[in-house]
Each structure stands twice: as C-alpha cells, then as structure tokens.
Design a protein around this nucleic acid. Structure first.
Lengths: 155, 155
DNA sequence: CCATCTTTGACTAATATTGACTTTTATTAT
DNA sequence: ATAATAAAAGTCAATATTAGTCAAAGATGG
C-alpha cells in the first residue's frame, strides 16, 4: 500500500513508538542511518508531521549527546485542547495544517467522525478555492476557529 | 457500443478492480503508461466517471510516493433532497438562505443538531466576513455544496 | 454543421529528497 | 580556565518526483 515514501515510513515508525509511550527521544543521525536518508530529512518529517496542530511538541539539543524528543501534548481538558488549537491556527492555516487540527480533534473525541468529515469538507482546498491562496488560508482559519469556539459549548 | 475510446477502457479497468475491492490506489503516470495516454487523461477519466454522484470519492497526493486513490462509497437515500438543495444554492447564497438550507437538512434528519450547529458556525456571516458580500456568498455556497455532497454517503 | 466528448500538452502546484552551510553544545588539549 | 576541536542538530535552497489545471485541437454522433 505505501512502501514508497520514506517520510511516511519514518512518521509511522515514530508514531508506533508514541502509541505506547508518551514521548520518544531519538538521535537524528541514528534515525537517518536507519532509514538511509540524509539527517535533514528527519527535520522535514518532524516539521510536516509532528506539529502542535498534530498534537505533538518537539524539543532538541545539539552537541555531544544531542537528541530530538517528540512528545504527545498533554492537555488538561477539552477547553485546553481547544485553546491550544485555536492559538496554533492563528489567522491563517493551510489545508495540510487544517487536516492535522481535525485529526487532533478526532483523536481527542471532541468531534465525531461525521463532524470531522463535515469539517474537512468545509475547509477543503477545493471548497475554498477562490484563486488567492493567502485569502483561502485566512478564511479557512476563520471557519476553523469559529467551529472550535462552538465546540466549547457542545454537550 | 462501449470500449470504443480509451477513457472508457480506463474506466472499465478501474471499475473492474473496484468490483472486488473497496478502493483502488494508483500511480497516475503508471496508468497513463499502461494505456499509453498522457497523464492528464487520467484526471479526465476521474473527473467524468468517478464523481460523487456516481458513488466514488477520490483523494490524491503529489510528490514522491504520490498516488490517486478512488474509493467506492455507499450512497444514502434522500439524494433527491440534496440535489434539490444543491441546485437551489447555485454558486451564491446569503446567510439567511443558508440558515434555511440547514433547517431543511435538520427537518429531514440529514444532519444531527450538533452537525447543524457546526454548519451554522462555518457559514456564519461573521465567520466569512472578508469585506466583500458577493464573495462571501459565493464562498458560503461552496462550503454548503461541499458539505451537502459529503452527506450523500456514509463514512 | 454543430454540439459534445476525448485527447493532448504546456504550464502549475504540492510534496519529498538532498546537501552545503550554520549554530549550538560537549569534550579535549593547553 | 580558555581555546580548539568534535559532535551533534538546524536552516535553507536546489532538485526530484509526483499530481492538477486549463485550454486548444481532434474526433464523434446527431
């Protein structure tokens, strides 16, 4: 199904660890060696797949004994999750980041699968296509923030 | 009758796979090579023969390891209502009219109360406020049509 | 002949991969 | 202690690898 793209494979590898543990601490070069990619690709994977929108935080240290630590964000309650996501969205968000937000909402059971689908439809690139990418991203942000705010009062 | 042109042949090829499996994932260029057509013809086939009206959804990803995935979905009843609403919306709809559409959806139990709330939030005047009434109405129409199309099938 | 459908290809957009160069931190030598 | 060196990770832009769009040209059927 998907043996093609190394970034996805690395993502899956890390998420498998994170399924059991709260955090994972890696050596960038070790992981790069393990999958036979250049070290900076690890940064790419992290930057595209382990963002705060996805529900992860990342810390690192350089130099001898350096590391990259990926942690599932530990949120106190639903309101905390919503605040965090709203903050992460700001006033502009790409479709990709938007999907990450929806994934986090679903993972935390703040929305049902059906609601997530509706949200996806509403924030889809095709849907918001008006020939101005920055405006699209701003509208997407407004829609998502509006919905997140409504979720505060959802029973 | 059928099978005359290549688009039909490609359509048949994909539908034969979909007769056994729920979904099919292809590489656009591979299929284009297989049938000796330009890649964009695959897009044409998909756009004309694998629409949501026909019971298919399509996802894709570009870049390394990219793909096009076509999935068969179970269409629900009440499609005539959706068609009517989509038709009524056209490519522009005011907030007032939008509320009416949402009301119709609720009345026909095509959405839950929570989903209706979510839809309201997404199409709210304040949410879509960008200082251009006509553009706002067009975006609202796109969002609502996109969501109505999602309501055609069950995830 | 006209309308619609199909085929083609030039251009665009998104995503992934790579590598040269930079920055930070730790360790070692003086 | 300080300076030099080594050992990490970070940044960024170039390149590669896909898929998408759009409109023109060609084919087909009524």
């Amino acid at each position: 199904m998907q043996g093609k793209n190394l970034s996805d494979v690395i993502e899956a590898y890390l998420k498998k660890i994170l399924a059991n543990d709260e955090k994972v601490e890696i050596s960038r070069s070790d992981i790069a060696n393990l999958f036979d990619v250049v070290p900076s690709q690890i940064n790419y994977v992290i930057k595209t797949r382990f963002t705060i929108q996805n529900g992860y935080t990342v810390e690192s240290k350089r130099g001898g004994g350096g590391y990259i630590r990926i942690e599932k964000v530990k949120l106190l309650d639903n309101l905390d999750i919503l605040d965090t996501l709203i903050n992460a969205i700001g006033n502009s968000i790409s479709q990709r980041e938007g999907k990450a937000v929806i994934g986090t909402l679903l993972a935390n059971e703040l929305v049902t699968v059906n609601e997530a689908d509706l949200l996806s439809a509403a924030s889809d690139k095709q849907t918001l296509s008006i020939g101005n990418k920055e405006l699209e991203n701003e509208i997407r942000a407004k829609i998502m923030v509006s919905i997140l705010n409504h979720l505060r009062y959802k029973s």
